[in-house]
Nucleic acid binder design. Sequence first.
DNA 1: TCATTAAATTGTT
DNA 2: AACAATTTAATGA
Length: 236
Amino acid sequence: MRSDNTAFHRRRPLNPDELATVPWLSCLLPAERERAVDDLRITDAEPGEFLCRMGRPVTYWFGVVDGLLKMSSDNAEGKTMTFTGVPPGGWFGEGTALKRETYRYNIQPLRKSLVAGLHVDTFHWLLDHSIGFNRFVMNQLNERLAQFIGAREIDRMNNPNLRVARSLAALFNPALYPGVGEVLRITQQELAYLVGLSRQRVNEALTALSTQGVIRVEYGGLRVLDLPALRSQVFN
DNA sequence: TCATTAAATTGTT
DNA sequence: AACAATTTAATGA
């Protein structure tokens, strides 16, 4: 079967280091794991390429090994709306894969990224055979639901500092993005794209947050010092 | 390995 | 949007 993913044509198997970044592999029994590892593929993805396109049939369940992706959709007027970023350790598209429908959003790299994919047929095989995998997917869906409810709140806020803080907190979610850890590799420009603000305004918000001791601004990345405080920012 | 240069990122206006 | 300052990455001796 031919893939509709432009970027995923150059795929290859994963090396041990890359396999170690796949969070759900540890939920599987040896036989299940063997089948999954056998099917997993990985590729480089460049900015501008599409990993998923709205309306295209689902071929893979994707996960970020390294880099940063954005999830967006185009509305009726042709305006692009960015939903969220996907940092390392994040796997997405399980809802669409479950129903074997077409993608309802676009996925593109914000910068050069390493993306792994599990074929949708293997995804369903794991759902049919692995309790551990089912538990992972269920937890994933639950966390994402909470995140999207949070995203609605963020959209209604007009305070830029709050928007930046809450969007950042979402990216530091350890359940959805276990590959992130203490330091999130993201430039202020990239964060500006995700949040929908200017880089200057994001810089101002980040400076305010670092003054409060909630984060530390580093070159090419951000270090979280107090995740609960980042989540529950109320003023400024 | 070190020094130099180019490129990327940040902070500020 | 533009600029200078800073940090990293790339290059070659």
